[in-house]
Design a protein around this nucleic acid. Structure first.
Length: 356
DNA sequence: CATACGTGGCT
DNA sequence: TAGCCAAGTAT
């Protein structure tokens, strides 16, 4: 490769033409050139799922969502609980709540078609600067600059920027904007992200095979692996709680729908105590012969570790819970539970079988 | 600008 | 193992 002073979008696009990763929502570069445009609904859905989430984790969810709800109008007409259940396990559940709000807004305010307009996209629930730019570029080929974690890392290395994130964000955004081409904006956006995901990786980047190795300042100075700098994170405290798993004589399980805000908002879960650093006060959802499991459920969230004591009970058909409702076995899918609640269920299963 | 908000995989 | 990391958004 010829030595260059500044990186060129054309070099990256040439690499992308040969190395684009295959993903169910992606139109490969050859097809894109031939005139096949991506479905904005699928672009939007994939981008929301990909927020802070790996391609490997998203793929199965994307396939299930698009099989069940092929278009934005189908999703807009779905029951809230069905969408939350289908999202269970993917995390950041505000995304699912905003996904539904967004689908309904697209139907109600945009005639069921995603607007090909960056500012209009930005006004929709769950669509921020990154996602608005990604949909603009990938779905509509508008020359918007996409700035995600990959782009930040690639720009920090290309220009050997040592300012720690998030303070470096404006500088990195400006660097990314300066490189964005007018043509093939969608392919270019996906190319930078593929580069970050496969070559310009957080640890041990593969600089030797990078299409931008020649103009990369960090590679020249040997600082690539330590960029981007980040401000240190705070330690996670430990919170304690109690979860209550009640099984009725017909096998129905006592579950409740959590409020539509905050942690696990809108998701199905076991009734329980508050989660706090202090030992929790008991909060059984009904009076029964509760039995503590020998093992607690452990789970780590973004900002704290959780240790849940699990209490189980078998109750009669006359049981009248103060919270939640009994869900018959036919209506209960463990996969509808967020992971922490599924851990509680998995710990309880054996004991419930013995008791029942 | 800082914080809340999940999860699974990798080192 | 404990920590870091992933195609961020809302407040």
């Amino acid at each position: 490769m010829r030595e260059t002073e500044t990186p060129r979008a054309a070099d990256l696009l040439e690499w992308y033409d040969r190395n684009a990763r295959i993903m169910p929502w992606r139109v490969p570069p050859a097809a894109r050139r031939a005139g096949t445009a991506p479905d904005p609904y699928r672009v939007w859905l994939s981008e929301v799922m990909l927020q802070q989430t790996t391609v490997a984790a998203v793929t199965a969810y994307f396939n299930r969502f698009t099989a069940r709800w092929p278009g934005v109008a189908d999703l807009a007409a779905a029951e809230d609980g069905d969408v939350m259940g289908e999202w269970a396990g993917l995390g950041y559940y505000a995304r699912a709540r905003n996904l539904l709000k967004c689908a309904r807004a697209v139907v109600a305010e945009h005639g069921g078609t995603f607007p090909a307009d960056h500012d209009a996209l930005l006004k929709l629930p769950g669509i921020g600067p990154y996602t608005a730019a990604a949909i603009s570029a990938i779905a509509f080929d508008l020359p918007r600059t996409v700035v995600d974690g990959n782009v930040e890392r690639v720009m920090a290395r290309l220009h050997d920027i040592h300012t720690p994130l998030p303070a470096a964000k404006p500088e990195l955004t400006a660097a990314a904007a300066a490189l964005t081409p007018e043509r093939r904006a969608g392919d270019y956006a996906q190319a930078v992200m593929d580069l970050g995901a496969t070559i310009c990786t957080p640890r041990t980047p593969a600089c030797g095979i990078c299409p931008w190795r020649a103009p990369c300042a960090a590679r020249a100075r040997g600082t690539a692996a330590e960029l981007p700098k980040k401000t240190p994170k705070k330690a996670k405290p430990i919170r304690l709680g109690i979860a209550y798993v009640a099984q009725r004589a017909d096998g129905a399980l006592l579950l409740e729908r959590r409020e539509d805000r905050g942690l696990l908002g809108g998701m199905l879960g076991w009734p329980g105590s508050e989660w706090a650093e202090e030992a929790p006060a008991p909060a059984p959802p009904l009076d029964a012969d509760w039995q503590a499991l020998p093992e607690e459920a452990r789970h780590t969230f973004t900002h704290f570790h959780l240790r849940l004591m699990v209490q189980v009970a078998q109750v009669g058909m006359e049981a009248a819970p103060r919270r939640g409702a009994f869900l018959p076995p036919a209506d209960f899918r463990p996969s509808d539970l967020p992971t922490v609640m599924r851990k509680v269920y998995d710990l309880s299963r054996g004991v419930l079988r013995e008791m029942g």
